[in-house]
Design a binder for these strands. Structure first.
Length: 266
DNA sequence: GCTAAATGTTGAT
DNA sequence: TCAACCTTTAGCT
């Protein structure tokens, strides 16, 4: 289940396992079969992550664009790969390892122009070195929509999804209902810093853990599932900071969660 | 076994 | 604003 951290972690993993290899490719489910056959045996150069998009670059300028959507997932492992079962969209493999893709919104063979068109729609990605907070501020501060909607807009910044939206706004005491343009530059800078830190932690951990140990029910050890978030999916449960009941409402077509006391102004 | 929901996006109404 | 799409899983019966 993917926000930007998942995508960047996959890029690192797949570069480490597969970059520079000629890969056997297949699509047991059939929907990517022609392209997989076309690319089978072609050298895989590397994969790049931008926001929630992956671009697998092959020799000859061919690119596979993958977007996991809400349900897509990759799994990998050493050979021998298991017998394909279920809806397996894309399998890539060499003599030592395989990776399987299921359920993506997009898995398509594209050219460089199509890559550019996707990138042109995206705002800066906080996980990329060149990401400019000034540019995100420009894009965010002129929007009249709620900040909870702006954070989910991949044209403002690329990679934040529903969990990081809820958690980053909570940590900064900002209601998702506040107009994006009402944030001060100081509030934005703090929010940006939180988003970068949270996404990086997610890449490292391989899952979203936004709470710090002192805010959890137990003192030490890895965060339990129910301890990993401050507000996400915690409707009616007490806020970890103030005890008020967490509320939820649909913002930008997704369920938003926040503490009405710690995050006033909505 | 069935249903709804899920860390997402697009395109039609 | 809403439905469609892709798949798995949790929570029911």
């Amino acid at each position: 289940m993917p926000e930007g951290h998942t995508i960047h972690r996959l890029a690192r993993r797949h570069n480490s396992l597969f970059a520079g290899h000629e890969l056997r490719q297949s699509s047991p489910q059939g929907r990517f079969a022609a392209s997989a056959a076309h690319l089978s045996g072609v050298r895989f150069d590397r994969v790049d992550a931008y926001g929630k998009h992956l671009f697998y670059r092959f020799a000859g300028g061919r690119v596979v664009h993958v977007h996991l959507g809400l349900y897509g997932s990759f799994v990998d492992g050493p050979q021998p790969a298991p017998e394909p079962r279920g809806a397996l969209r894309w399998r890539i493999e060499h003599d030592d390892a395989y990776a399987d893709l299921r359920g993506p919104t997009a898995c398509e063979l594209v050219d460089d122009d199509a890559v550019d068109r996707v990138l042109a729609r995206l705002g800066p990605d906080p996980l990329r070195r060149e990401a400019s907070p000034d540019e995100v501020w420009r894009r965010l501060s002129r929007r009249s929509i709620p900040v909870g909607a702006a954070l989910m807009d991949q044209a403002v910044l690329a990679g934040v999804g529903n969990v990081y939206r809820a958690e980053a706004l909570h940590v900064n005491g900002i209601s998702p209902l506040r107009p994006a343009a009402s944030l001060s530059r100081a509030e934005f800078d703090a929010l940006w810093s939180t988003v970068v830190t949270m996404l990086k932690a997610g890449v490292r951990a391989g899952r979203i853990v936004t709470t710090v140990p002192s805010d959890r029910s137990r003192r030490s050890g890895p965060a339990r599932v129910e301890d990993a978030h401050y507000v996400y999916r915690r409707t009616d449960l007490p806020c970890r900071r103030c005890g008020a009941a967490i509320v939820s409402s649909t913002i930008a077509a997704r369920t938003a969660y926040w503490c009405p006391v710690c995050q006033p102004g909505g």
